[in-house]
Design a protein around this nucleic acid. Structure first.
Lengths: 233, 233
DNA sequence: CGATGTCTTGAGTCCCGTCAATGCACGTGG
DNA sequence: CCACGTGCATTGACGGGACTCAAGACATCG
């Protein structure tokens, strides 16, 4: 990596707040790498050898059971951080849902650098606390919500998070967007089967709440109603 | 707080690693406070004004929806940390499941102290990462597991975590323990109704996997089978 | 134009939720 | 000591929402 100061996620990733010279050091420790849609960055159970910043793209974080059931426990976007610093094994896999570009560090290298740069650890802490909040909200969804509520909640969240991925901070929720997930993956996020997902989406479409121009595209036609259906806490 | 060096969670809480003099400063910033079973430390939606270490007791971390549905998103034990540093609002409530004693700090005071003590922030980061791992495992449970699997998993986890609460690190899983949760709360952890919980427990008892001497006590008679039923990932 | 993978739709089933009654432990007061 | 009330927990009957199984529609690509 030649010049982190020009990085498009410079102001949003964990590296924000580092001095120019520190950034230069960090830059020399990492490398950029591209992954294509469907590629897995690392597997559940692997020794957690790498951590990374997401420069571009959308990736899923997932866990699975021995019989093959899979749960997606997180979706990460541009400027998010992946991997498990200060740990031995990663409990989850990370897979690219779209073509993606990452800024990769070996875990031990990153650990060492982080321990010498409290500002970086602080940013990482804040980020992890936010992730924990989000995980808790997902647990509420999975534990207590109906299929319709789950779908509505996910659509709203995707419209917000996909809207955030631009460089500015304050661009609002999108009314139309392309889902980076197929039906199976939506099911794996929400704890539903592919058929239930499909039926729920069809119903929302029939009710005029959303429009589905093609398999991957969602257009929100009645955001207020979708919000109501999501039973927002 | 007079003397943190004598604290029973001295070697397990986030304060581990602080020098004696730093510990003395931190000690003056906090105060010990007792809560009785059922008392709520802070509410979801409140301004997050306090954070705390759990000295003694078991507490639940929960979120709820406007219509009253409640999901327990975490259970915390002795030496765990509660509250939301570096945030404005707490997204969850924390309530004592047993009589408990906490070491409480105002959030802003703690934030300031933490920012000046990277070692403390580091410990907090590790702890938060562990919590995130645990949250992910819970998501897998809630999203993909059957009622039987969820109950079995919870019983095993409780047997382990209740076994850890002693001062030494390496005491193993307990074969008999008192649940700090009533049936409703078990349901709120697992995303099940009270009746389903009851039926599942009765069935495990009838099958000889566990024994239920009284409402709150669980004795594991066949751990291997319980492990099998939990469909451990 | 088939071949393939993904999505949708339908029919039937089952697990869990709902509603309701009963059981059990504990406490209080007659 | 027993009658009674209260709070949980258990158990049963029933219904519904999501899963399962299976077929059909649709798009993409060779």
């Amino acid at each position: 990596m030649k010049d982190c100061t020009q990085c498009i996620i410079r102001n949003r990733a964990v590296c924000v707040g580092l001095e120019t010279d520190e950034l230069a050091v960090l830059g020399r420790l990492g490398r950029k790498q591209k992954f294509s849609k469907g590629q897995t960055i690392f597997w559940e159970g692997d020794d957690a050898v790498v951590v990374a910043n997401v420069i571009e793209g959308v990736l899923k974080v997932s866990m699975s059971m021995s019989d093959g059931r899979e749960q997606i426990v997180g979706i990460v976007f541009s400027s998010d951080f992946i991997g498990r610093p200060f740990g031995q094994q990663s409990l989850h896999s990370v897979t690219a849902l779209t073509d993606a570009e990452l800024c990769i560090f070996s875990r031990s290298t990153f650990n060492n650098f982080a321990r010498q740069h409290p500002e970086l650890e602080h940013k990482l802490l804040r980020r992890t606390l936010n992730e924990l909040d989000r995980a808790h909200e997902w647990m509420l969804r999975l534990g207590k919500k109906t299929a319709t509520e789950r779908i509505a909640t996910l659509l709203l969240e995707m419209s917000v998070r996909l809207g955030e991925t631009g460089c500015t901070v304050d661009n609002g929720a999108l009314d139309a967007f392309e889902l980076p997930l197929d039906r199976q993956q939506i099911g794996d996020v929400l704890g539903l089967t592919i058929e239930t997902v499909s039926r729920q989406l069809s119903r929302l479409k029939a009710d005029g709440v959303i429009h589905l121009p093609d398999r991957r595209t969602v257009a929100i036609r009645d955001r207020a109603r979708l919000q109501y259906l999501s039973a927002a806490a």
